[in-house]
Design a protein around this nucleic acid. Structure first.
Lengths: 197, 197, 197, 197
DNA sequence: TTCTAAGCGAGACGGTACGTCAGGTCTTTAG
DNA sequence: CTAAAGACCTGACGTACCGTCTCGCTTAGAA
């Protein structure tokens, strides 16, 4: 008796198609800035693929872009390893601020905010933002553990402030480097997060 | 000598049409929740207006909804009149957090969509964001004048933190009231903005 | 007792507008070849006139073009004054063949044939074609009277043959002059119209 | 060695759609009498077809109706088989005069409209007029061969006279049958086309 | 002179149809 | 059974005219 799953009959799906489609979707998202401006037809054409091949894999435009964007995971720095909270946070938000200025991430931003497809936003939050947020939480918890930060902080609120600040900050073209933006945000917030004693 | 601008020739545009269109757009937006699901034809029909009358005023769907949403500005509180900075900021951001959960939020998202339409973005910045920001700046400056806040603050960064925090905070449905959200944000930031002495 | 009609009160209609509108209509008809391609707006603009000024005079596009085209009356030669039928007919159809090659007359032709507005066709027939036909009939009757032509001819059929022949002939660009076309048509027909004697 | 053209890739165009569209166009044309009163949208709807399916096949309304009408060619009689020229021509022009009173006439008018669309005019000339003309030429050549007609005739001119005569004749509603019209035209012309001897 | 009625150019109005485009599905042939 | 290609239906897009309706102004005869 053979318990290993039976191989599906017929021609197997092309893995090249998968990656080509996702790549094309992200490229076009980066070029056009918002999802409505990218047609499934354009993705298919850019990927050198038939439209049906896309619809065989995803049930619609939203799902396609959801998955495409969810593949984007910036490498984040290690935190909490002895450095100060301040330095940890600056490291993390330098990456975040940098991302936010890249054209692709702008597309992601729009996509995430687009109320047109709430489930996409939810999935992006889960797959893209949650890991990033987790790093921030780690840094904050480490800071609390070391006594650098007040123990009664609402960590979610701190996260919101920093992420939102990074987000809004990135919308004005001040000529600052991502690092400079990160330092300004983190220092401004941190000066109030430190335990007084 | 007449310096007032000469009146345009021809039949003037109907102000009733303006308001009917904007009203219809907002109604339908409220019913369908997202812009893509509302057709210009439906707006025209609901407003009892020809499509051309819409396109005479706005160059497209996006512009129409941008303006429609921009009309939804909530009145902002007076600040700097003797109350504490903390109370001023809480008052302002209670309004902001409330707005962000209402249809106006859709406008904010549209602003983001408009990365490709800089002039629309500029208009929203001017009509929606600038007045709100100005109130925040007033509160902060009053706080500095009274010695409540450090004099060396980067006000822009403080603004970014609070506005961004409010924005991100509003995206998660925690069941908190706008007032509670505002207090959390403001208190968290303020505890570090106060002059130490 | 004054029986002459009382002059209408108010500002009288501008005769310049009348002529300018008709002129513009004919010009544009000549340029665009068929009525559907000429908009009332274009006529108004070309005439330097408001649209209402047109609609005050004619109840619609059809009536406007009807009247415009009805003003076209080519000067026709005198016939039946002693010359031969053949020469009379050649003279008339030289004019007709010439007209049919002018751009404007092509517009008229289209207009007349346009089944979209039967009443226009009827009026053009009456005001433009009937006088021309009458001259042909005169020539034919003179020929019969002089014994040049058979007395039992169906004059309408002869007219149809010649007019239709001129019409169809003018549609092929053979490089022939109007006179040559006319002679070919008339001679071919006449050789059978002559009394045998 | 395969000389037959390779089959085009993708789904082939539906022949049912072709015929349904053409049928619907002619039906509506019959109901509304003139082209301007028939909308492409109505044709699509009647044919049970999307508008795009129409525009994929024809570049516009005019082209669609041109082709629709061009399908209405009546079968022409055999000529030159022993009968007299007169009878041959009467047979042919009975068909022609009949057609000119039917919906086909609308096609003729469209041809005229197409002064601005030379390729459509060319198509109608090729598909509708050329075959008919060829039959007339055959009859005339047979007549010459048999000595019934003068050998020095300009056949093109004879054709123009008869065709044009039929056309103009059909525009007045005299209550005559197509056959009567044809006889009048042919007899009038023939009496001069016969060799004298 | 002043009043009144209509005409004037300009252009906005509610509609209808145009021709285009994209979404998501279906139908070919080829592998 | 999958692949690429491309036709299919649907429905919204933004445009162009139609014939009508205001605007503020001009033109003339009547008061």
């Amino acid at each position: 008796m053979n318990t290993e799953p039976t191989r599906a009959p017929g021609r197997p799906r092309s893995p090249e198609a998968d990656t080509a489609i996702l790549r094309a979707a992200l490229e076009l998202l980066g070029e056009h800035k918002h999802v409505a401006a990218v047609s499934v037809e354009a993705v298919a054409s850019r990927a050198g693929v038939g439209k049906a091949t896309i619809y065989r894999r995803w049930s619609g435009k939203e799902e396609l872009f959801t998955e495409a964007v969810a593949t984007l995971r910036s490498p984040l720095p290690e935190v909490g390893q002895g450095a100060s909270v301040r330095d940890d946070l600056v490291a993390v938000f330098t990456v975040v601020c940098g991302d936010l200025q890249s054209p692709l991430e702008q597309g992601v931003r729009l996509l995430m905010m687009s109320e047109t497809h709430p489930e996409i936003a939810a999935r992006i939050r889960r797959d893209v933002f949650a890991p990033r947020n987790e790093v921030v939480y780690q840094a904050l918890r480490a800071g609390i553990a070391r006594g650098e930060l007040r123990a009664d902080l609402d960590l979610t609120t701190v996260l919101n402030l920093l992420v939102g600040g990074a987000f809004v900050s990135s919308r004005s073209d001040t000529g600052q480097s991502p690092r400079q933006r990160a330092e300004l945000l983190v220092d401004t917030v941190c000066d109030g997060l430190r335990a007084h004693g």
